[in-house]
Design a protein around this nucleic acid. Structure first.
Lengths: 334, 334
DNA sequence: GTCGCGAACGCAAACGTTTACGTACCCCGG
DNA sequence: CCGGGGTACGTAAACGTTTGCGTTCGCGAC
């Protein structure tokens, strides 16, 4: 620990420059000296100081992933994908959990300007004012870019996801379909609903309600639905947690999910497959989201022509909450 | 971006040293110059280059958390705790997901020796051979240290957790208790069983079985139990995923969890509270685990007298899988 | 024998900070 | 008026690398 290039140079009897070249595999050093340097470096357990190197080369071997809450089952997979891709390019991954505190996002931007990281993968919304400071070193993952900014976005096609659900539900022959959702201002809410509308007959769609992206909110919205005079016999929840809440409300009302009411979620978090009645849902390619975001970012940093914003494809996972019952197994629909 | 201390020094008309002192709040610079420097720095958007600073001070503002699989619902909370604590001390958190590949652990150790990070929080087991390279800059979180190494450990008291379950189960008046567990060689399996034994009458404990820490394994072990001639009426699963699997097996066998069979899990991952019948389980203080681990590590790095290895206390969370039925609410037992 | 040329290596500057040390200056007590 | 001490600054070295440029040397071609 703490052995420098100079020390190696001294014991081998060459200059520091030669050691540097030898260890980096650059030409300009003879095979004999190269061997001696290599073995001496290995013997002393040398590894180059990253900061000195970064100082002169200008390259920083770090990316940061900024998430609102790593505890939310959606993000760990994104993190894993991003880390894998970063590792492929010799980078490590910083994790910044904002916990919805804006100061933490500011801190992440500071990481950039102090050159602690080479780039940022933002999985949280950013304000316009911040766009200027981040040009070329940031990509958004799963969230919109600040308006009128040139920040590349990689996301998942929410409208397509909605269409997949619509197609599936339309084929089921239910009479009344409700849409249970998160905040009305969230684009993903709106796009998933729009996709749904694309694929179902007009008179099938019943009540549309909004709330937060939580189990509790799902339970409340579900309760309201089942209390109504004409309760729906099919429900699309724009989120798995909401769907779980709706399932609880159904259970409270004495209704059996899958028989009395068809239920579809969104996201395919782990809970979905393990719920009391396994949830039919739309699976987001979370791992790939992280992977593509990291790749796009690294390309942008390396000055490659920034590829067009990418829209990944979600997948419908049919389980038992709509009546079809392939046991606990998962049947996928392309 | 890219404005240096010298440039500021030049436009203000002082030396670089003075700028450095002013910006760091050190004495030795008059109030007038200090103001001018501060405002000029703010105007140009200066922030100090982390690598140059690290190079001369020797301090690195990074910690790394090494986990086997960030997708496992146990670790995100640990990460969050570690990151919060690190942020309090001005450090950011690297995430290394080994995916059980040993080379990735080696890579994490390389992070240390190349001084990319100041220390490591290891949530994966390490070999003895690696202990030497990491002295004083590593703490283990939730796993054992390599044998005969002086690496500090912060963990959760598994035996106490087992005792909590034992006490709860003993008070229920069941006749036959089975223990369903992960690999027999894992210490946590053994300790949780030992704690259970501490608190229940000898003749209550029935079959003890082992497998992997997965839902499938739980389902298999559960199936075996319910097929036997004298099936247990209480089951302690050493892991929530196992418990979920056991619940599935019970359901398959036509048994109602909470009535026909009491079931207790371990870990309190999110699924536990959302399962078909909410799971009574032992909650690990995951957030605190990460927090304390990070704190211990930072103290050790700062040369403070390394505090004794810490054992955190788990908590019993009573839900409905043992018969008591406080709705979906959670009643905690101290 | 000389010229030239490439290979192998050394020299030294540079990256952006921090910090020990030196120096000028001011103020006050003698 | 002089000396001493404190304050406000500047100078320069150092941290560990990388890299452009120069030097030396050996060797083949003429």
């Amino acid at each position: 620990m703490g052995v420098t290039i100079k020390q190696i140079a001294e014991t081998v009897g060459v200059s520091a420059a030669t050691v540097s070249r030898a260890l980096n595999g650059l030409p300009g050093v003879g095979p004999r000296v190269r061997k001696r340097i290599a073995s001496e470096a290995a013997r002393r357990g040398y590894s180059p100081d990253a900061h000195a190197r970064a100082l002169v080369t200008g390259r920083v071997p770090f990316l940061a992933l900024v998430v609102p809450d790593i505890t939310n089952p959606f993000f760990p997979a994104v993190a894993r994908g991003a880390e894998e891709e970063a590792a492929l390019r010799g980078c490590s991954l910083l994790l910044v959990d904002t916990g919805d505190r804006p100061e933490r996002l500011e801190h992440a931007l500071d990481l950039l300007s102090s050159r602690r990281v080479a780039g940022l993968v933002l999985a949280v919304p950013a304000a316009n004012g911040q766009a200027a400071r981040i040009a070329g070193r940031v990509v958004m993952a799963g969230v919109d870019a600040p308006p009128r900014s040139r920040v590349p976005v990689v996301g998942v096609d929410d409208r397509l996801g909605g269409r997949l659900v619509g197609r599936h539900l339309a084929a089921l022959g239910r009479r009344s379909l409700a849409f249970v959702s998160g905040p009305a201002r969230d684009r993903s809410s709106r796009l998933r609903l729009a996709g749904l509308r694309d694929e179902i007959p007009r008179d099938l769609l019943g009540p549309v309600s909004h709330g937060r992206w939580t189990v509790e909110s799902g339970r409340e919205q579900g309760r309201a639905l089942f209390r109504s005079s004409s309760p729906p016999d099919a429900i699309f929840a724009a989120n798995d947690l909401l769907a779980i809440g709706v399932a609880q409300a159904a259970s409270d009302a004495g209704l059996a999910v899958g028989r009395d009411v068809a239920l579809v979620g969104y996201d395919d978090v782990e809970v979905a497959g393990l719920a009391s009645v396994p949830l039919t849902t739309v699976s987001q390619p979370k791992l790939e989201l992280g992977r593509v975001a990291a790749r796009t970012l690294l390309d942008a940093i390396d000055g490659l022509d920034t590829p067009l914003p990418a829209l990944l494809e979600p997948r419908l996972v049919v389980r038992r909450s709509c009546g079809s019952a392939p046991d606990f197994a998962t049947r996928e629909v392309p």
